[in-house]
Amino acid sequence: MDISKDMWMEELLEKFPEAQDFLSRNDIICVQCGEAVWGSLENILKAKDYSDKEIDSLIKEINEHLKDKKTGGIKCLIRSY
């Protein structure tokens, strides 16, 4: 399963917790006040003025990044700082 633009942030973080680091490095707030923000990824990105094309591009990039088994995923990047 891949991340899709209609996926709500809560579901996204439940299924792909390592995506948070990627998104926060792109100034996308995933968690605030200790909880996943409401709304689909598409809505959240549109609130940040992302165009449809940019949304598709970002989602493609996240999915490719998550599939990169060699790095062990983004979770490991956090640990290796």
């Binding site: 680091d21 926060s24 968690v31 956090i78 700082y81």
Partner: peptide, 20 residues
């Protein structure tokens, strides 16, 4: 402790940002 894993990771990302 911090409430959960997602919140933990979010806070850590700010600390790491500051470190760098």
């Amino acid at each position: 402790a911090i409430i959960d894993k997602n919140a933990f990771d979010s806070i850590v990302s700010y600390i790491e940002y500051a470190k760098k």
